[in-house]
Simulated scan of single mutants.
Amino acid sequence: MSGRDALPPLQCLKAFEATARHCSFTQAGRELNLTQSAVSRQIKRLEEDLGRPLFERVPDGLRPTPAADHYYRVVRRLLRDLADETARLRRHGDDHQLTLATSPTIASIWLSRHLPEFQRQHPHIEIRLLTMEDPYRLDLTEFDLGLYYHLEGQVDPPGLMAETVFDEENVIAVCSPHYTRHHGEVGTPEALLRQHTLLVLEDHFNDWLTWQDWFKALELTWHEPTHCLRANSYQVLLNATLAGQGIILGWEQLLADELRQGHLLRALPQALPSLGKLSLLIPQHRHLTQASRTFQRWLARL
């Protein structure tokens, strides 16, 4: 391909597509994990390559020029097709394989109990689990669908749209029967803070699920607890809870089987409606495979 006919660099096209979609260098940068100035430089390079301006500044941000508006639709379609084909090849061309991205906790506590029924109904679909605590670290080309607790408007992984799995969800305090046998019933929120061990998650992504916020939202008196066990992994803390090491905040629907089977019990009667909901995360601008659509329909019937 001659220099005159050479295509623009892929990173410039990705920056252009994101900027045109958001009408903002800043929001495009967040999605692409780039600074605002880096996105601006990519757009300038593309404008120099094409020999024409692509955006004009308006009071509320950016507006694509008429030529850029048409170019955006072409680039968006090509990037989507390229992502689809890349994902297909990475899955070795197997249309019957479904890669689910999720957190280790959801995979071990919830999916492990429900997936056998899905596999019984759809034995031709091969399941692959990709576990990662933070959906911000996901590579959209490496999975088909995601399952995470999603806080609408505040925790929105770029390039994904969310469909709620549980319409209603409560956050409750739970512990194991083993813990109460050795440490006694909790009794009151005040006793919880003074006499028991709180398991505390140190994770910037999940900092909307904290003991302090739970107490304050329920209009309970909060002060720093006497005893804590801290970790940056919810799965580690949940395993510690099951082993009788303390009391943790958990989602009632997610832990329903553990509660029903008596592996966990409610440490306090109070319940707080959850800000985050278990959600199916669907990559935008991608054609869903048949396996993905089958799983999506199955999940909606649970």
Rank of each mutant, 00 (worst) to 15 (best):
Y149G: 04
T102F: 05
W110I: 00
L100V: 06
H70E: 14
G29Q: 01
A18C: 05
T19Y: 05
D69F: 07
L89S: 03
S40D: 00
L46I: 01
P116V: 00
K14N: 09
L79A: 05
F118S: 00
R90M: 10
H114G: 10
R80L: 05
R88A: 13
E142C: 11
A68R: 04
T86A: 09
T65N: 10
P64W: 08
P59F: 10
E48I: 02
L62V: 08
T99H: 15
R77N: 11
L62N: 00
P53C: 05
L145A: 03
R120M: 11
T105K: 05
V58H: 11
D49W: 15
E31D: 12
L147Q: 02
L130T: 01
P64E: 08
R91Y: 11
G93W: 00
Q27R: 02
L32E: 09
A15P: 01
R80Q: 08
E56W: 12
L129T: 02
D95R: 10
R63Q: 08
A67M: 08
H22F: 12
A107S: 15
I106G: 04
E117A: 12
E47I: 03
Q42L: 14
Y72A: 09
A15M: 06
S108E: 03
I43A: 03
C23I: 00
H22D: 07
E56P: 01
K14H: 09
P104N: 00
P66I: 07
P123L: 02
R57I: 13
A15S: 13
P59K: 14
R73I: 12
D144Y: 04
L79F: 11
